[in-house]
Design a protein around this nucleic acid. Structure first.
Lengths: 151, 151
DNA sequence: TAGATATTTCAAACATGACTGAAATATCTA
DNA sequence: TAGATATTTCAGTCATGTTTGAAATATCTA
């Protein structure tokens, strides 16, 4: 397979990962492409310029996206002495973090449910509706807490 | 507490639920408000007109949203003989369904990962990166499959 | 069937937020 | 320090998808 055929294949895969990120996690397309590329690129560490080039986005967009991705801990910024360009690589546990965060943010519903139960009083079908929601949303969190992923 | 104070409190709660739905599930605000209202309203069955009035949305918007919510099985449409209005109530297992669907849609990543492994061959750090992602994403699904929620 | 009321459709308005280009700034080499 | 290169900022553009009003349609009562 020629180099550019292989490159094409990589890019199509990156696009699939990006689509997945957009649908599942609500990330912007470019952010998804960056993550996809950082998963499959060689070498693992890439400069913003390299990434911008390969996924066809502007450097400006890369700047804000890389800041975001490093801020939330999905990507690590690497600097090398005597080199003015920064390099980025995806964190080993990036996806684990994504899922963990998602589970944690579900806990926001706990407070909402409590407030709801307070409003409708302690009895009746309204109470049941709220409790059902609360149980469903805490179910996964409890599961995850009891069965952490080991790698 | 006066009736309108109570109503205000209900509406503020509905707004919190809506915000949660928007952030966590990417639903439109009005869809979230409908779900919130259907969780806390009395009686549990409400007409599109009643809902539109209380959450301050147009009937047109209600039509499309109720169709959507019934189509995905979160809301049940109830018709009564000799009454031209349709009534809607939230399904008992609505939230369970939401979560279940979310977990199922994660499985899309399985195929993406397989394709990725195929592209990069069977060895090296690129393989590790893809496998790490795959493991994280299947972890929750396996957990959920092994420990279903009983109500 | 006629009249009244509720629902649905659809084109257009609107809001939101991603993305970019250009200018400003920072960081390196010589 | 001067020059070269990379990064960051920010205001404006653009695309996407939600919401609405108005007209058309359906469903009921008498």
């Amino acid at each position: 397979m020629s180099t550019e055929e292989q490159q094409d294949r990589l890019l199509r895969w990156v696009e699939r990962v990006a689509a997945f990120c957009v649908e599942e996690w609500g990330l912007p397309p470019i952010t998804g492409r960056i993550l996809g590329w950082l998963m499959i690129c060689d070498p693992a560490e890439q400069s913003a310029g390299q990434i911008a080039e390969v996924i066809q986005a502007s450097r400006a967009s890369l700047t804000s996206n890389m800041r975001f991705l490093t801020a939330i801990g999905l990507v690590k910024k690497v600097r090398r002495p005597g080199d003015r360009t920064s390099y980025y690589r995806i964190e080993d546990d990036a996806w684990q973090k994504v899922i963990q965060r998602k589970l944690e943010s579900l806990s926001a519903f706990g407070e909402i449910a409590d407030e709801g139960l307070d409003i409708v009083g302690g009895e009746g079908h309204r109470t049941e509706r709220i409790k059902a929601a609360h149980d469903s949303l805490t179910w996964l969190q409890n599961l995850a807490a009891r069965h952490p992923l080991r790698r």
